[in-house]
Design a binder for these strands. Sequence first.
DNA 1: ATTGCAAGAATGTCAGACAATCCAGGTTGA
DNA 2: TCAACCTGGATTGTCTGACATTCTTGCAAT
Lengths: 223, 223
Amino acid sequence: MLSELNLRISPRTVQQETVDKLRLAILSGLFQPGSRLIESQLCAQLGVSRPSLREALRSLEAERLIEIVPNRGPSIPALSWSEATAIYEVRELLEVEAAGRCASRIHAEQLRELEKSLAAFEEAASSNDSLAQVTTAADFYSIILANCGNPILEEVHRGLVARISFFRGRSMSLEGRAQSSLAEMREIYESIAAGDEKAARKASKRHLLKAKAAAKMSMNSES
Amino acid sequence: MLSELNLRISPRTVQQETVDKLRLAILSGLFQPGSRLIESQLCAQLGVSRPSLREALRSLEAERLIEIVPNRGPSIPALSWSEATAIYEVRELLEVEAAGRCASRIHAEQLRELEKSLAAFEEAASSNDSLAQVTTAADFYSIILANCGNPILEEVHRGLVARISFFRGRSMSLEGRAQSSLAEMREIYESIAAGDEKAARKASKRHLLKAKAAAKMSMNSES
DNA sequence: ATTGCAAGAATGTCAGACAATCCAGGTTGA
DNA sequence: TCAACCTGGATTGTCTGACATTCTTGCAAT
């Protein structure tokens, strides 16, 4: 009996599993910024051989999720605020463009999905689960990026967002940030739903600038 | 006697050398798009072991310079025109921004470098060496990106440009393209030199749109 | 306290092996 | 004749084990 039908066309390899597991671990903040990763430990924890692990590490290095310095091995990069600022600036460029394009080309079905994800964030925002807040907010934006009509825009954006995941969790846990974030996102949604490209750009820009300011506040207050 | 002083703080590893060599080979069009790369052959040609080679391939995969499909191995991706269009669109976003920022913040010394690189392109444009044309034109833009004040912008841009290197060589060899390209680039330079941000953006946008059109022409005429 | 050294740990790199998978070409059956 | 099947070679995915090089850390000596 084919209880679990496996249509996966490209079989998942050990390398891919390893990359995914490590990426998830990094994005959820399991490792301290600046901390070093020991190959032998990771091998044992993940149950893979050293060559496979090293391939995975090279992939993550190219994604800039880890740094590998020769003869010292891999470590979690500690993002400085100036680097984070640079990322936020490029994110702004991409997100504003995506929101604008999205407004003029999204289909009804995807619009409903966007609405749903906004509702999910609303739910999360009223709770105190900051992980859920970050996740649902990320979902909201990936729907926008996925419907902007340019897969490259989406790809580049994903890469950048991953690198500042560290800041997102902290800024979202700021007092009142989730609620104001909700209001900003609703504005974006309304603009897109109305097909108003200009408004969508404006709302998107406003949202990102506030997110950036929140990130900076959360950073100064604790670091 | 310290004839060749070696201050290189991070020693070059086999892996790095391999990535660099392969990247250069790919960018200079040594491999046909769509062609497969055989690990054992590359190992022999590069004189490295399979584990080292595979690490290098994973890095290049993450840069999107090659594709690796499980159980089939690495190959050179054949870029479709729609993908290339998407890349050109994002490039536009980045380059326009960079040119604008550059206009308002570049220093005198770097401006001279930019001028020199423009002269180098002028020299190449009047020759028939399309490789030199592509190289010098790339130099011109990397100086702009390097002086826009945002290293992330530069990094993302470099990644995108690498992926369409295939088209650049062909479009540059179009009749008269080099000369008109030169005129457009001079406009960009003049705007930046004058510190006119708005003009720099406009000139940069115009240049990219023409480059894109040229790439499309060169594609339709031969493919 | 600073310097120098030595042992241990970790990485960079290779060789070799083997199973799983893919591919090309020939063989078989309708 | 043509399609489906099958088989052998080629290629990749993965592991084990090994060793030289480099880094780190703690101790000893000045």
